[in-house]
Amino acid sequence: MKTKLFTPYFFIAPALLTLLIFFFLPVSEAFLMSLTDFDIYSLSSLKRARFIFLNNYLQLINDPIFWKALFNTCYFVLVGGPLTILMSLFTAIALNSKLLRFKKFFRLAFFMPVVTSLVAVAVVWRYLYHPRFGVINYFLSFLGIDSIDWLGDPKWAMPALIILAVWKNFGYHMMIFLAGLQTIPDYLYEAARIDGAGWWRQLTNITIPQLAPTTFFVTIMTIIGYFQFFAEPYIMTQGGPLNSTLSIVLYLYQHGFRWWRMGYASSIAFILFFIVCFLAMLQMLVRKKLEQS
């Protein structure tokens, strides 16, 4: 049967129209803004805005706090990302193991943090991290570790947020890995067992390679998601102490909504966009190379 020319458009139109009005138009508006010095003054009269071309971007390159925010974000992505993925991979493999009982309970437990609101759990984490009354320091004291001011010490604030993010997010990716694990055909394992391969060999020779597409997907999603690191520092530390948890998006938010420097804030957003684009492409290239070899 022939498909009429407009039929597919009929199906995608509602979504595209919504995206156009509430996403793409605003994004292009934001891009235009990034070429101006639109700020609080311009809010009442556009005469008070100047078209400054790439000046915002140039200023950004010379802004030490932007570099600090970029560094912090990379720190978060490079440490938090792999930790989250490893944790979710480990729990997924464990939950998929035939050895394990009470699977439903464990799965629920691991997934619990994902469904909760960060505003709400931030309260309890701030308390767990409390240098004096917090449980974490209490447990650490048994190991002979001195009290750590988790959220107040510039050295420890980021690790504290990373722990929180891993806790909050690994359950989600664990589910995706579980889905991936289910698609691995049993005969592969049977064949391996006949060949006398132990669980470690099965893991490295079958599970990990077979999971590669899932891992790729999860990695991309994690990178994109973690580069937009915002809610944790916004709620827990407001970027402090000493800007040690200031992320790019938080910096963007501060300029945009706290100081109302929308022009500058928009340029931060687009720099972030270019970075993530670049990383995503890099990863695709790497993957292609790996597949070829």
Partner: peptide, 28 residues
């Protein structure tokens, strides 16, 4: 369905997932 411009459109949509939502807050 296959239609004109599907692949580029889809890739365009996918790559725009990278744009942080905070950018659009004020215009929206």
């Amino acid at each position: 369905f296959s239609f004109k411009g599907k692949r580029p459109l889809f890739i365009f949509l996918l790559s725009s997932m990278i744009i942080p939502a905070q950018v659009t807050m004020l215009p929206v």
